[in-house]
Design a protein around this nucleic acid. Structure first.
Lengths: 141, 141
DNA sequence: ATATCTGCAAATCGTTTGCATGGAA
DNA sequence: TTCCATGCAAACGATTTGCAGATAT
């Protein structure tokens, strides 16, 4: 979660220009907890920047991902989701309503160490996805 | 991992016909550890059944997945991978060569319980993906 | 006999790319 | 002024679908 100034600095430090579109895309990501897809970002940002295009959304999140200020999620759906919280943390998707939530915390270091021992891999990352029915959908049933 | 007879029974019990193509696709999946993509399945099975089509591969794995004898993996790549081992188990992908391997075992029950308490979800599944460099690629470097 | 399956080709959908114009430095 | 970015439209790649002919039961 960077402020606009911090974001601008990161972009410039990486030889990228600071544009209103990029600010808007990052802003949207920093202010949501819904782990939006490219389409959700586009729909939201288009309200303010009516000329916004899908291409710009994709190009923006690609840069953000490359410079390490946004992470890309793939929860097994058709489309990617994006998260401005770059701390590795588990996610859980409701199989009824499709919403994706954060899971507070899991001490993954030990687990990675164990996996490294078991497989001989030099482990440098992971993604944990859980699936189930969210509290709201449980109440509906 | 079902025998041909067991597979035939499962298919018939679900109102599906037993065809040579379906047997071949399942056979291929049951005899590999490489967690193949649809393309890898197609390439392999085409050697024996020269008329095999992509459509049939996709339709076959969809049925297998629906009746619960194949699981679909999504390790964050462009394409899905398929696994005839339906036991929930973690996978690890080498970021150099792209190969996907099984991770022996993690006691996930406790972790799911913890996630359930933290989120209020009725948790009924998970996918754990690890990323790193495999032993072979480490030696090359 | 009849419902299902195969396999081709066309369609779809998310994502990427080429390129002319526009904007940041 | 000089790149780099935007945004349209076309391209792309994995997957899905429609449908006519073939096959399992």
């Amino acid at each position: 979660m960077l402020s606009s100034n911090e974001l601008a600095k990161v972009l410039r430090d990486n030889g990228c220009k600071v544009t209103p579109q990029r600010l808007a895309v990052y802003e949207m990501l920093a202010h949501t907890k819904e782990h939006p897809t490219a389409e959700m970002i586009y729909d939201k940002v288009k309200d303010k920047y009516t000329t916004m295009s899908f291409a710009t959304v994709y190009k923006s999140v690609e840069i953000f991902s490359k410079v390490g200020i946004v992470q890309v999620l793939n929860t097994g759906e058709e489309s990617y989701r994006y998260d401005a919280n770059v701390m590795e943390h588990p996610h859980i998707r409701c199989t009824k309503c499709g919403k994706v939530f954060d899971v507070p915390h899991i001490e993954a270091k030990q687990i990675e160490d164990m996996v490294s021992k078991q497989t001989g891999f030099d482990v440098n990352g992971h993604q944990f996805y859980f699936y189930g029915v969210c509290p709201k959908c449980q109440r509906k049933a």
